[in-house]
């Protein structure tokens, strides 16, 4: 896929005694919000660290922007917010943002001007000469976010961006992510909170124990994984409903009450075509409701309850997965 911003090809990373990431392949198209989902210890952070070139994969390759070169060589085009974030506590806010921007190759003077503008925009203008440890936690999170995107990256990688945020800051972070996408930035973020991912992601990849379980567009995943759940209410005339429902290629499970039916579609069946067929056969519908299974349910189905609770780490000294 030439438009892919990020392609992982059969990436494997082993640490003493266990395999953190096992033959993982995925592709992140340009301009989407991409979720990397998995229970704790699934290998999300290790995957992200390999994308960021912080650690090297033992096997497989990571390709950014469809171009050769390591993540470090592309670092000016990537923004990264690690999990369990912190800042230099004794540094002044503006100096800190400028320093981190310099690390991304932004020229010092330009970084200073942009940092000041961003601080102003997020209501921290008066705090720019204060030391980081004088800021509240919420303010520090804003500072972190500024330093992640100040160099105007094309790809932003966020490791558990919503972990530890209060509801207000969760909202702020969500708005910021959506705004980035509006500006054409590709966002990859990891999370173990399914509701968040379901609302935000265009595409996602679910991993557990270092292996990919499923990936793709959110709607496709929902359909291919469990098929659609459909509720139909008739307004007198059912038309050719009985024949249509009998087609096993379309309907997998049926619970027909005459004027009311609940059915589960086959994985490849298209509910829109069923609707068209019903209407053209003369059925009058009072209700046609697609109810999708939640991502949470898919996740539990796929991962299994035993993987949702991470196994004991074989090596406490090893890096977090």
């Amino acid at each position: 896929m030439s438009s892919a911003v990020l392609v992982l090809d059969r990436v494997t990373k082993r640490f003493a005694g266990h395999t953190a990431v096992d033959g993982l392949s995925l592709s992140v198209p340009r301009g989407v919000i991409y979720g990397l989902l998995g229970p704790n210890g699934a290998g999300k952070t290790t995957t992200i660290r390999m994308i960021m070139d912080i650690i090297e994969p033992d096997e497989g390759s990571v390709r950014l922007f469809g171009e050769p070169g390591t993540g470090r060589e592309h670092s000016a085009r990537v923004g990264y917010l690690p999990e369990e974030r912190g800042l230099y506590r004794k540094m002044r806010v503006l100096d800190l943002i400028v320093f981190l921007a310099e690390m991304k190759g932004v020229e010092r003077r330009r970084a200073g001007a942009q940092a000041a503008a961003w601080l102003e925009r997020l209501g921290l203008g008066a705090w720019r000469w204060r030391r980081v440890d004088e800021l509240s936690k919420g303010m520090q999170q804003k500072v972190q976010f500024i330093s992640t995107i100040l160099h105007q990256p094309e790809l932003v990688v966020l490791d558990e961006p919503f972990a530890g945020l209060d509801p207000v800051n969760t909202q702020v972070m969500k708005d910021a992510v959506l705004e980035l996408r509006r500006d054409g930035v590709t966002i990859l973020f990891s999370t173990h909170i399914m509701e968040q991912a379901e609302k935000l992601c265009d595409q996602l990849c679910i991993i557990a124990r270092g292996r990919k379980l499923v990936d793709g567009a959110v709607a496709d995943i929902k359909r291919t994984q469990t098929g659609h759940h459909l509720v139909i209410g008739f307004d007198g005339a059912p038309g050719a409903a009985a024949q249509l429902f009998a087609d096993k290629r379309v309907v997998r499970k049926l619970d027909d009450y005459g004027q009311y039916a609940e059915l589960e579609l086959a994985p490849d069946a298209d509910p829109q075509r069923l609707l068209a067929a019903l209407v053209s056969s003369g059925a009058r519908l009072a209700r046609f409701e697609l109810s999708e299974p939640s991502l949470h349910k898919i996740f539990i189905d796929l991962v299994g309850p035993e993987a949702a609770t991470p196994e004991a780490r074989p090596h406490p000294g090893g890096p977090r997965a």
Partner: peptide, 16 residues
């Protein structure tokens, strides 16, 4: 300090 605050990850993703 850099290790405990995890800043090191951001730094190491842009320089060796």
């Amino acid at each position: 300090e850099e290790k405990t605050t995890r800043i090191v990850e951001v730094l190491v993703s842009s320089l060796r």
